[in-house]
């Protein structure tokens, strides 16, 4: 890229006063010596003038009081609840927030589902096993459900005549709930 191209890329920033002192000086010196770049500068200045002129002319015709009345009307107007909700959502639910909120929600739901079995008490909520069939081959067997721990217990008594035991012996030979 030659010097003129470099300078022309910087004319805008130079006019805006945004160049460093040394860069600004380099542009100023070049413009003083180069007629082509000087024309480019004039064109840019005219462009800015045209754009500004047009808008300043428009704005100068805006009377304040009618404008303020328009603002007041908006302030005093009763807004429906859904307008406020819509306005809030437009401001709060921006695309970047939604883009992050949706995967964050998925991750949170995933974590909750995974934690289900690890939280104290929660894991045992559905721990009741159902006994579909049982054959104790002549022995006495008890099917028990312990509510506190939600545990199904299959208890095999030691002899085939377990039902004839006294209550005292049963408490020593088997669980009591």
């Amino acid at each position: 890229m030659n010097t003129c191209e470099t300078i022309r890329e910087s004319i805008g920033s130079w006019l805006d006063g945004e160049l460093s002192p040394s860069a600004s000086e380099a542009v100023r010196l070049h413009l003083a010596a180069c007629s082509d770049c000087s024309v480019a500068r004039q064109q840019l200045e005219k462009l800015q003038l045209v754009v500004k002129d047009e808008l300043v002319t428009q704005a100068a015709s805006i009377d304040f009081m009618p404008f303020w009345r328009g603002v007041q009307q908006r302030i005093n107007r009763k807004r429906a609840w859904h307008e406020d909700l819509f306005e809030w959502s437009r401001g709060f639910l921006t695309a970047p927030r939604i883009a992050w909120a949706v995967p964050a929600l998925i991750v949170v739901l995933l974590a909750l589902f995974s934690l289900d079995s690890y939280l104290p008490g929660r894991g045992v909520r559905d721990n009741f096993a159902s006994v579909e069939s049982i054959d104790a081959h002549g022995r006495s067997v008890a099917l028990l459900r312990e509510d506190q721990t939600k545990t199904t217990v299959i208890w095999l008594y030691q002899d085939q005549e377990g039902e004839n035991e006294t209550a005292e012996e049963a408490s020593k030979s088997g669980p009591t709930f």
């Binding site: 079995s117 006994v131 579909e132 081959h137 545990t151 199904t152 208890w155 095999l156």
Partner: peptide
């Protein structure tokens, strides 16, 4: 199925909650 040697002690079919358990107890 629980056996003692060759002798069956108890046969049962149980539906256990996934990652859950049940207790089989009593053999001396």
């Amino acid at each position: 199925r629980l056996t003692e040697g060759e002798k069956p002690v108890v046969d049962t079919t149980v539906k256990i909650p996934n990652k859950g358990n049940f207790i089989l107890g009593g053999p001396p």
